[in-house]
Design a protein around this nucleic acid. Structure first.
Lengths: 142, 142
DNA sequence: TTATAATTGATATTGATTTTCATTTTCAAA
DNA sequence: TTTGAAAATGAAAATCAATATCAATTATAA
């Protein structure tokens, strides 16, 4: 967690952006909440500890965190944007329970390889991809 | 194309929903435009031939087309919803050029099989998935 | 024909996100 | 320290796509 904070501090320093009290607080709460939060959910958590911090600041900080490579914005089928931790997480895809909302991070080298093959076969220069698997988890099936 | 129209007519009949002039017109224009359109883009096309038809009706018709299994709503990374033809198209994923926006429909049984394996390995009952590959196409690379 | 119900299109509303802007804070130079 | 410029903040307003509302229109079947 300290590494992530340092990485953010370094990013801000490099860009000449200030590591303000608010940004620091928002990063802290983001880091200690290992969930795929929406901006609103994060705002509500932040508000508990720091009632003065506004919605807009949370939004702006989330953008900054993404730029700094600490988090990634995911848009889901229902249109909501959720933010996930990137620092210390390898590239991964998601397996999602449509009943309880559970997220499982998936890494499958075989699939990654096949994706590369598809890019090549169509003459594309690969940039990124997203894969989401939707189903019903063990608990919810019962 | 006639098959698709018949399928839509049948769906409406079964549901006791009327096949109105507007719905018919919107379906026609949707069918003859083999692109991944946004609702607004479709509306603009519709307006050319049928200036009286309103935005809301286009939206409602798109929902109906999706329910009827003729089209599918896709939410992309930029948040825009686009609608693609389903009738006569097998399940497929997408390879997308981030420069010119070109869409290629991808079918890869090997990946599909691996996805099934992932569902099983985590005890999930599979429902659906999405996979999008983003890169730069041959033309745009030059 | 007539009563009923569905559909339409204009408009208003929603909800998430982004922008604006006056105020506050920070930082660096004097 | 002060002070002045620049950046950041928070509240409110603006935006934008999507959805809901509702009076008017249209279609259907008795």
């Amino acid at each position: 967690m300290q590494q992530a904070k340092d990485a953010f501090a370094k990013y801000l320093l490099d860009k000449g952006i200030r590591n303000s009290r608010q940004r620091h607080a928002i990063l802290n709460i983001f880091l200690k909440t290992e969930k795929h939060l929406t901006a609103l959910e994060l705002y509500n958590l932040v508000k508990k500890e720091h009632p003065g911090i506004g919605y807009a600041t949370v939004y702006r900080s989330l953008k900054l965190l993404c730029e700094a490579g600490l988090c990634r914005e995911l848009k889901f089928e229902d249109g909501t944007a959720r933010y996930e931790h990137l620092y210390g997480h390898k590239h991964h895809d998601h397996l999602i329970c449509t009943s309880c909302g559970k997220f499982v991070e998936i890494i499958d080298q075989e699939i990654e390889g096949l994706q590369e093959k598809i890019f090549k076969a169509h003459g594309f220069h690969p940039q990124r991809h997203r894969m989401e698997l939707y189903g019903v988890c063990k608990k919810c099936k019962k």
